[in-house]
């Protein structure tokens, strides 16, 4: 475990907590894409299959549980909570996210490190996570005024993977034979998808104006 990875995990945890805070305290999911949340729940469900079979560390197990429970409870909140669901704008959240699932699965069947069920599911979760933010980014472009918590949520979600990239660079130089092209490339693609969001987020922060993405 290095500082970049710890910072990445903490940033990821912070993004989840910001989202839960928003939904649980102000009972609103305005501007949040249910589809991205569903994709993330699927990402964690397919990536943490080894939760009960392989024990790496208490930290690892604890964080996996937190991400699993939080992602599924966020989906539940937006879908079933009597107050929160009213603030979900399904007419705007129209990205056909099922079209992302199949290509990622097929790609995982073709490009993976080992042709086993666990490995293919893990690789699928990696590809899916790379594109899971797309429905949310599309929704942000449609939502005129993005509230602060939503902006912070997306920023932290993008930042965590950038920190993971630093972690991979660090591990590449410190651990012999540490080479994981699949992880590195999908992590890079994922981070690049946030590039324009980061730009506008930084501009809004620098000029102290409301965050707005061009349509």
């Amino acid at each position: 475990m290095n500082i970049f990875r710890l910072a990445g995990d903490m940033t990821h945890l912070a993004s989840v907590l910001v989202l839960l805070l928003k939904i649980h305290t102000i009972k609103s999911c305005a501007g949040i894409s249910l589809k991205t949340q569903e994709l993330y729940a699927l990402v964690f469900a397919t990536r943490y299959l080894d939760l009960f079979t392989d024990y790496i560390s208490l930290y690892n197990t604890l964080m996996k549980l937190i991400f699993l429970v939080s992602s599924f409870s966020i989906v539940w909140y937006i879908r079933h909570h009597k107050i929160v669901r009213r603030s979900y704008d399904k007419d705007q959240d129209t990205f056909r996210h099922y079209f992302l699932v199949l290509p990622c699965f097929l790609l995982a069947l073709v490009i993976n490190e080992k042709f086993t069920v666990k490995e293919i599911m893990w690789t699928f979760s990696l590809y899916l996570e790379a594109v899971a933010i797309l429905p949310q980014l599309v929704l942000l472009q449609r939502t005129r005024n993005i509230d602060n918590l939503t902006g912070q949520y997306v920023f932290l979600l993008g930042a965590y993977r950038s920190l993971y990239i630093l972690n991979w660079i660090y591990r590449y130089f410190t651990e012999p034979h540490y080479v994981h092209w699949i992880t590195w490339i999908s992590g890079l693609v994922q981070t690049l998808l946030y590039a324009d969001f980061f730009y506008y987020y930084f501009q809004s922060w620098k000029n102290n104006v409301k965050l707005e993405l061009p349509a």
């Binding site: 990875r5 991400f67 972690n167």
Partner: peptide
């Protein structure tokens, strides 16, 4: 190397 050692990250 085994699955566990290759997937020690979140």
């Amino acid at each position: 190397s085994g699955y566990v050692s290759r997937h020690d990250e979140l």
